[in-house]
Structures are given as C-alpha cells and as structure tokens.
Simulated assay, not measured.
Amino acid sequence: MKKVFVFSAFGMLIAFFGFCVSPLAAQQSIKINFASSLFGPTHGISKMHEEFIGELEKRTSGGIKVTYHPAGTFIAPPQMYDSIVKGIIDVGESACGYTRGRFPLTEVFDFPLGFGDAGTAVNLTRIQNAYYEKFRPKEFEDVKLLLLFGQQSQILHTKKPVRTLEEYKGLRIRAAGTAAQVPPLFGAVAISVPATETYDVLRKGAADGILIPPEALKGYRLGEVVKYTTRNYSSCGGASFFLAMSKKKWESLPPDIQKTIEEVSKEFHVKYGQRWDDIDREGMEFAKSLGNEIITLSPEEDKRWAALARPLVDDYVKRMKEKDLPGDKVVEFIETFKQRK
C-alpha cells in the first residue's frame, strides 16, 4: 500500500508540472531553415536577421530552432522566391526587383518616389508594410509574408563631381534592376554589371559611377574607387525586400508558434529600417574618412532632376491599369503617407 501511495504521489507531481509548462516550451523544437540571398555574414542586415532569429527562438521558449544561411551559401536572389514557394527553403529573404514581373504592384517602391531627405529606410519600411496591409497584393498569396523592409537611397556615386544635369549626361553608370531605367532619363548610359564585379569595373574606369545605397561605400568598399557622392534623394530609386515563409511550413506550425512569429515580425519592421539607415550613415562616414566629397544639389537642380525621374512613376500607373491593378491608388496612398508627420 505504501509503495502504491508513493508512486501515485510521484505521478501526480509529474502531471502537475506537465500542466504548468507552456505549450511552447513543452514541445520538441521545430527546425526551420532561413536563407538570405543578398547579405553576407558581416552585413548589417545579415546581423539583423540573426537578431530576428534570436528573438523568435527566445519568445517561443525554444519551440523553434532556426538554422541561418547567409548570402552566398545557399540560394541566389533570382531563385529565392520560387525556392520559398516550393518549400526548398522554409524562410527566405530577397529583393522584389530580382524577380522582375513577379511583384508588379510592389515594384513601385523601386522607382523614384520623390521623398527627398524624408526617404529614410525607417519611413519606407513603415510605408511598405502599411501598403501591404491595405492592398494585400495577390503577388504574395503563395507564401506567408512576414515583413517588408526597404529604402529610397539608390543615389549617385561617381569618379568625377556631378552637381548638374549637364555633368551627368554621357556618363556610364552601373545600375541594377529597375534602377537601370534611371540613367537614360538624365542622358547617361546604364551599364549592367554583377555586384561582385562592380569594384573592379569602377577601379579600371570601365564605368564612371554607380547608383547604389551609401552603405555599399563601406560594405563593398566602393568608397575607395569613387570620389564623389551626389545626394539626389528626390530623384533616386529604392528597393523593397521581403521576408517570407513557405505556406506548407507555416501551416504545419502550431497556432501559438504562428502567433509569436507574427508578433515578432511586426515588432521588427522598424528595426530593419533603422538598421539600414545606420549602415547608410556608416557608408557616408567611411567615404568622408577617405576624403571623398558629399555633394548636395541646389534646390533648383534638385527639382530639375526630380521632374525628369517622375515619368517612371507615371508609366507604372499606366502599366498597372493595363493589368487591372490599382497602381494609381497605391501611388495616392504613398503620397498621402508622405505627408504624415
């Protein structure tokens, strides 16, 4: 009888503590593979991915275990979205512009939107996520979108000073994706060169400049092969990056894990934007430390450049109308959002 009582009491204790453990902590860790297609292990955004992952693992009390693959170790940018859709990777990051035509409505954020100095990555990231919540574009229906982040900082960096349109004309400018449509508007020539070859192309003089965010001045050490940065924020393009999970993986997760992932993703929107602003600032400081000159356009010149860039947005609206997509409403939404303080 005594042995029966001891074992019964022991069993009750196990049951009691079993009920006290949260569902997140009680389950075995669910393994998730996360790949970046653009940012290597030392890049600021790659470090932000690691912080995001750490917060997910912490908030799920070990309910998920994420293995992170920085850029260059798994999947290239053009293949990333399809790899997520097919479940080759559980969570992936890339830029919408690397899969041209796949994200027709969202590509508006690649074009010059005329933000000027207000075009910080924090502001663009807020707008992009607000845009997604409002319009729920069908182009993301085959994945679970976790968050968007972006910038409007694809400004001009050159070997010779560019303060006027006249000095811009005739230059050979490396520009990728949608940004390749920008130089011809200013009478320049767009050159398509892989990012990994850009440093040598500029060093050898095969290109006169590049359209790219300032973070690349330090991150890719481009500040060593250009001498001038023109702050043409009113006429520069940008980018929209996505973090997405395969639908199959998402639907296999318990509801409490899903809820936590959504909460953390929402909290990290602005953190991604702030990190981009930080590395852009670091890039500018690196360039200045090398003796490079940062050029601010005169108000009159800034308006001339912005007027020449605007047709890209107008053309976007026209093309979206032909696809029966609300491009005009999206542009109106962005313009309204820009006015908020």
Rank of each mutant, 00 (worst) to 15 (best):
K2Q: 11
K2P: 00
K3T: 08
V4A: 13
F7Q: 08
M12S: 13
M12H: 05
I14F: 10
I14S: 05
F16N: 02
F16Q: 08
G18S: 14
G18F: 13
F19C: 10
K31I: 11
K31R: 15
A35S: 15
S36I: 12
S37A: 15
P41D: 07
P41I: 03
K47N: 04
M48E: 09
H49G: 01
H49T: 04
F52H: 01
G54H: 01
L56Y: 02
V66K: 08
P70G: 14
A71Q: 12
F74K: 13
P78I: 15
Q79M: 11
Q79T: 14
M80C: 07
Y81R: 09
S83I: 11
I88A: 01
D90N: 09
V91D: 01
A95Q: 08
A95V: 05
C96G: 01
G97M: 02
T99S: 12
R100V: 02
R102V: 07
P104H: 03
E107R: 01
F109I: 06
L113M: 12
F115L: 08
V122K: 14
L124I: 11
T125D: 08
T125F: 00
I127T: 01
A130P: 00
Y131L: 09
F135Q: 09
R136I: 11
R136Q: 12
P137M: 14
P137H: 11
E139C: 13
D142F: 06
L147T: 14
F149E: 10
Q151H: 14
S153R: 14
H157F: 06
H157I: 05
T158Q: 10
T158D: 12
E166R: 14
Y168R: 11
K169V: 13
L171I: 05
R172Y: 10
G177E: 00
P183F: 00
A188I: 02
V193M: 07
V193R: 04
V193C: 08
T196E: 13
E197A: 15
E197N: 15
E197P: 00
Y199C: 06
D200M: 12
D200I: 10
K204I: 15
A207W: 01
D208R: 06
I212V: 14
L217P: 09
L217A: 11
G223N: 07
V225H: 08
T229D: 06
T230Q: 10
T230R: 05
Y233S: 08
S234P: 00
C236E: 05
G238I: 07
L243Q: 03
A244P: 05
M245S: 07
E251Q: 14
P254M: 09
D256G: 03
I261M: 15
E262L: 14
E267R: 09
H269R: 12
H269N: 03
H269P: 02
V270P: 00
Y272F: 12
W276Q: 11
I279Q: 13
R281S: 06
M284R: 12
K288T: 03
W305T: 01
A306S: 03
V313Q: 04
D315Q: 07
Y316N: 02
R319N: 08
R319F: 04
E322N: 09
K323T: 06
D324Q: 14
K338Y: 02
